[in-house]
Structure formats: C-alpha cells, structure tokens
Design a protein around this nucleic acid. Structure first.
Lengths: 215, 215
DNA sequence: TCAACAATTGACCAATGGGACAATAAAAAG
DNA sequence: CTTTTTATTGTCCCATTGGTCAATTGTTGA
C-alpha cells in the first residue's frame, strides 16, 4: 500500500470525518474500484484487480464489502458525491436564478471531471443499472437532485410547465454530451459543452415566454 | 433450434440476400447475442447464454464467429442497421429540409425501437467502446451518418457554423433522452422525446437567425 | 506484559468462462 | 452411391472468479 495507492486529484481526505481507520480503507477501496472501472469496464472489473489497484489483497476487499455488487454500488455513490459537490460548491456562490442555472451547468462540466476515463466508468455503471436495484436507486436520487436544482432556478424564469420541460431537456443534453465525450474522446470540449447547454436554455426561455414584458 | 429461436419484430429475413444457410445462422446468432445483451448486460453475456438463446450449442457460436468480441461487434452492427433503416425509410419520404429534419428525429424514436431493453443492450455496448477498437469504429460511423443526415437538412436552414452546433446538440439530446429511458424506464415517452428535440431545434433556429428576411 | 481485538494475508474451493478439438451428422457435389 | 464439404455437437482443458476461512500479524488498552 505505498506506490499503488490511487490518489485522485479530488480525493482529498477530511481528517475530521475519517477518524476510523476502517473508513479510510473503505474509501481507498471505493476509489480503487472506480479506477479499475475506468480502465477495464464492468466486464473486466475483478476483485483481484481492485485489490491490486489499492495495493492490497483480494481478501481485504471482501473484508470491507460484503460482495462485489456492494463494492461497486459504493463506488457509484462515491463518484456521484464528487460530481455533486462540484455543483453544490458553485451553487453556493450563485445569487440570481440565472446564476444558479449556470452553476448547475458549469458544475456538470468541471474541468477535472469532464474527462473520458471518468465517463467510461460512469457508463459502465449505468449499463448495470437495469440489473441492480441499488444502482437504480442511486441513479434515481442523483437525477432527482439534479432536477430539483434546475427547477428551483427555473421557477423564477418560466412557467412550471415549461420549467419541467426545460429541466428534462437540460439533463438529457448534459448526459448526451457526456456520452459523446465517452464515445469519442476529444470530440467535445468543456467549453463547447457548456455553450451548448446554455444556448439550449436561452433558446427555450426565449421561445416559451411569448414576450413577457418587452424590452 | 425450434422454440428458442428469437424473432424480433424487426428481424425480417430477406429471402433474396440470405441465400446461404451460413448467413441465416450468423444473423440468428447476432440477434441472439443482442437479446442476451438486453437481459444480462455485457458482464453477464456469455457464449453459452447466447447459444441457448439461439437454441444451439456453444460450439456453433464459435464456429461462426472467431471469438466473443467479434460476435458482439456484429451484434452492434446489426442493431445499428435496424436503427438506421428506420431513419432512412422516413428520410425517403421527406421533401423539404424541415421534413428531413423531422424524419431524422422521429426515426430515432420509432415506437418499437425506443424501448428500455434495446436501450440497455445499447448502453452495454457503448460501455465497451473505449476498450474495443472495432466497436469504437462502428460507433464513429453511426455518429457520422447521423450527423451527415442532420447537416444536409440544416444547411438549408442555418449558417454552416450554426448547423454544426445544432447538429451536435440534436445528437446529444437524442442520446441523452435514450439514456433517460434506459436509466428510468417510463420516465420519457416517445412523444415527449420527439417534442423535446423539435423544441430544441425550433429554439435554436429562431435564436440564431437574426431575422433573415422577415415574414 | 499480555490478552483482546482489528487488520490482513494467502491458501483453498467450487463454479464458470472462453476457446480448442475430435467426432458425428447432414448436405452437396460428383 | 460415393466423396467431399459443411453444420453441429459434446467433451476437454485451463485460467479466472467470487467467495470462504483459518492462520498471522499488528494495535491497543488494561
């Protein structure tokens, strides 16, 4: 457990919350699992590889997680938390509804997150959602929060009916742009992606509000 | 090979092109592979299951396909062909650029195709793209054609620069809506999806063309 | 210092995987 | 009716996998 330990740039360890050694190990293993997922995909992700990635033995993995499924479920939660934090951080600095909207959008394409490997792992996890109840629930929660964030901003900018539609469009568009990144790395830049979504929002807001007050 | 033969609704067999028995077998196996993918995902898709699905023995699968990889690469081609045909069929009946645009959009959400199982299989395949050169190429071709179809329609409706942007947006939005369907079946209806994309296009076209001629 | 406990390992196991192959059945060709 | 391909099966092999477990090695607190 020396040189093989994977330390993502966003893998800072809060010395306060991680009192227990076991918690540290668990976090290490979750991250190792995710790293393996990035490289090998769900089909190639084996307990042994995860152990190796964490610089430990296979036994230890099953000591901290009941089984493979549970391990990867926690890996998904971990990854989601990171993504979510990026959005929340930006959200805290936003004042107007429009700023909050941009916060969500830009947070979803954070420089160090909007990267092919992360996307590949994410894709693999998503591909298993239909066969893993827990993964499905996590996914559902993630989407619900995203949606909620969007709606709270949009309610100040459009009718509830329109806000709903636009929120769906934004989430779909974001997911679609991530997918593009995963399928053809380099085909979408962070800036392009952000612009796309912002343009979409602008287009929809203009289209749906039939001249509210006029300039 | 009697009752277990899977015959998708879209699995019509052209008696002209499929002279050779081997071609029939290959097509059966490709479709069986895809069916297994729908149920089990890439991680659970095994040669034995594919064989069972086709009502044959494992040996026969490897008789027609060099190895597992090749089998699933052909499965992806097959699925793509189906999707593509749906679009092409509609495209043939379209006259104006706008009609062509709608053809692409509606073709991508064809009733009997826009279904969770198909999406799940598709997702599993996409998740493997980063580790399979061939899959990546197929994926690239698919996207290129889609893009080309969109651009040929859009060139009559927007500047080349804008057309590019809009084409990217449309593909991403379509993919994103499919993803939603896969992650939360029932959360997006075919009609909703189509409306979303059409609204997007309308919003963008209105936004980008600063009053070309005026009504 | 020593007992209690947590962490960690490595050996082990049964099941399953992909793939090779020889043997057999079925067709086609002559 | 042979001969020659082609289709198909079942068996065998070996590597791998998820998971269990007993044994070992720290750690810690009394």
């Amino acid at each position: 457990m020396d040189k093989n330990v994977n330390v993502d740039s966003h893998a800072w360890i809060d010395p306060v919350k991680l009192k227990r050694l076991s918690d540290i190990r668990r976090k290490e293993l979750r991250q190792a699992a995710f790293a393996v997922l990035e490289r090998e995909g769900i089909a190639g992700a084996t307990l042994e590889k995860v152990a190796a990635q964490a610089g430990a033995s296979k036994g230890i993995v099953l000591h901290y997680f009941r089984n493979k499924q549970e391990l990867f479920e926690h890996a998904m939660r971990e990854a989601n938390a990171v993504l979510c934090n990026a959005v929340v951080a930006r959200l805290r600095q936003a004042r107007t509804p429009m700023e909050r909207l941009d916060a969500v959008i830009e947070g979803n394409f954070e420089e160090h997150l909007f990267q092919p490997p992360l996307c590949h792992a994410w894709l693999s996890l998503c591909a298993e959602v239909p066969r893993d109840e827990k993964l499905a629930r996590i996914q559902k929660v993630i989407h619900a929060r995203m949606r909620s964030n969007l709606l709270s901003s949009l309610h100040g900018l459009a009718s509830p009916r329109d806000a709903n539609d636009i929120a769906l469009g934004v989430t779909a568009l974001i997911d679609g742009l991530w997918l593009r990144l995963g399928l053809q790395p380099g085909s979408v830049s962070r800036e392009q992606a952000i612009l796309q979504v912002k343009n979409y929002v602008a287009g929809q807001l203009a289209r749906r509000e039939p001249v509210t007050v006029g300039a």
